[in-house]
Amino acid sequence: MSRSGSVAEVFGVFAKLGLTSFGGPIAHLGYFRDEIVTRRRWLDDERYADLVALCQFLPGPASSQVGFALGMLRAGVAGALAAFVAFTLPSAVLMIAAAYGAGLLGGTLGGGLVDGLKIVAVAIVAQAVWGMAKTLTPDRQRAAIAVVAAVIAVLLYGAGGQVLAIVVGALAGLWLCRAGSEPGAGMLRFPVSRTAGWVCLAALVALLIGSPIVAALTGSGAVSLFDAFFRAGALVFGGGHVVLPLLDAGVVSTGWVAPDQFVAGYGLAQAMPGPLFTFAGYLGALSDVGPGGVAGGVVALVAIFLPGFLLLVGVMPFWNALRARAWAGALLRGASAAVVGILAAALYDPVFVSGVVDGGSFALALVCFALLVSWRVVPWIVVLVGAAGGVLLAYV
């Protein structure tokens, strides 16, 4: 993949994704694959799975990290920032607005809309699993790795199970997937030097250690707010819903945000497109500590996303070196097969079990899946169909 695109192109693509990517981080990976791999062919499934595996290994918002890296690969550092801003801005603005009392969803209409968006996520993730399985598990060995990874991810629910599944898949790949491309073939060439990588890793460590010290010495509410959200973003694997306990500990247990406000904001966040981490903007705007309002929301948003991006950029140049090793191709083929298994496990729980609750929702999920796979309808139209179908089911 060459850096052949413009910043404006990257911003436009991710702005559309930011407005239409409902369903959480796993669903976002499906939207990304459909738009970037299938429709625009910026890279192939092998490289895409390689990138997903890298981001799954790291703490932080996995889907936002994938989007950030895709933007960097397409248009350099400016492209990475454009991808992040475009993908994050729509839900961030809505969540900060919600902190001012905007009741965006409620009653039967709102509940049906949320249910419909969950059903769309079922179809999107199913399409991603279907497409990636055909490419990344073409033989018995890699199909077996995917099945084992899915079993691990289902039985050991959470980010720990996902990381373990990728580790097991990578080790199995060393044994079972030796045949294939030459070392270093098809690698992702990130435009990041080793010096820049070390600087980012040093900045991450400095902020983790220094922020609480500065907050204690100065008594600054803004620094305390930054530290709480930075620490949450740095310590969570997989992103999405996994960050909620850390946010609860950071702002509810400390008395900064009332429990009912936290729950209401979380419910609203389920209906937002884009990353669930924008929930931080809502909490920062409501927090009794820090500047509050829009400024507090911006501080919280920057803080929660920053550690994941610093870590991602920090490991990029070393990932290239690893990728060039003689055994790396086999390891990454196994890890890529494991990614398929993880997506399949996520398709079951939480996507399917939370979205499909009766015969009507199952029928709507099938319709959305057929529109995507057989009719090749663009995802944003399928989102509208699913949302309208969810509202209809709620009233029927």
Results as ranks from 00 to 15, higher is better:
K118P: 03
V199I: 12
F190G: 00
V313T: 03
V340R: 00
A394G: 06
A206S: 10
G5R: 07
R39F: 08
Y266S: 14
A228C: 02
P291Q: 10
W130A: 00
G71P: 00
V257Q: 09
E182G: 15
V315W: 02
S4T: 13
I213A: 15
G158H: 03
L156K: 15
A185N: 08
V373K: 12
G197S: 08
V289N: 01
V199A: 07
S64I: 11
R142G: 00
L17D: 10
E46Q: 13
V378G: 08
L235V: 10
V378I: 08
A99F: 08
L392N: 06
V93Y: 10
G186T: 09
V353G: 01
G292S: 13
G169S: 09
G103F: 12
I26E: 15
V13D: 05
V396H: 11
V199R: 06
V10G: 07
G76N: 12
V77L: 14
G184L: 02
A78F: 11
P59H: 14
S354N: 10
I209W: 13
V351H: 03
A92P: 00
L347T: 09
A295S: 11
A345D: 07
D34T: 15
V357K: 07
G161L: 03
P90A: 15
L392W: 11
L331E: 01
A97I: 12
V252A: 07
V192S: 02
A300K: 11
A102D: 04
V313M: 01
L247Y: 06
T278K: 15
A222V: 08
R189Y: 13
L201H: 06
L81E: 03
G169E: 13
F68T: 05
S6Y: 00
A159W: 11
T38G: 04
Q65H: 06
G233R: 15
